[in-house]
């Protein structure tokens, strides 16, 4: 099936089995390996991407669902070579250990902050509750998201 969509701002055309998982399209066909797979069943969130600005699990989507969609992956959130405020906060606050959950965590946090720009600690915990992290105990991730939210406030960024 021929499918056209926008991937990180670029028009993208693929010709794949319509039921091919989006995670495989991204990682194997398009060599965008930033999006990770940790379970394939929706339980871990490592494959979180944004589809039309909302978080989606790439392991539970088929290629046909991409048609006409605007897709953002971890590779597409830097602007002019500068880290997204959430990426920056993750680095600065030590929210990254093995890093395998990190791309999904960042994408989930973008979804959270777009709905709720000033989340409480509890709301942050809820916002990333679909993303398992086995390394950090979540504490530094929560701190990073809070810091990114505060920084956005201050800079008046969208």
């Amino acid at each position: 099936m021929k499918i056209g969509f926008t991937l990180n701002g670029k028009n993208t055309f693929i010709d794949v089995d319509a039921a091919r998982r989006v995670i495989d399209v991204l990682r194997e066909d398009l060599e965008m390996t930033g999006t990770k797979e940790g379970c394939g069943t929706g339980e871990c969130g490592a494959c979180t991407i944004l589809v039309n600005s909302e978080s989606r699990l790439a392991c539970l989507m088929v290629a046909a669902q991409l048609e006409g969609a605007e897709v953002t992956t971890i590779e597409g959130i830097e602007r002019d070579g500068r880290l997204h405020p959430l990426q920056k906060a993750f680095v600065e606050h030590g929210a990254i250990q093995c890093g395998f959950c990190t791309p999904g965590m960042v994408m989930a946090s973008i979804d959270l902050l777009s709905r709720n720009p000033e989340p409480t600690q509890a709301e942050i915990r809820e916002g990333i509750s679909g993303n398992l992290c086995r390394c950090t105990g979540y504490q530094k991730i929560v701190e990073a998201v809070a810091a990114a939210a505060a920084a956005k406030e201050k800079d008046g960024l969208p």
Partner: peptide, 9 residues
């Protein structure tokens, strides 16, 4: 129910 991405989908 589930988690935020599960609720989104």
């Amino acid at each position: 129910l589930g988690s935020p991405p599960i609720r989104n989908m």
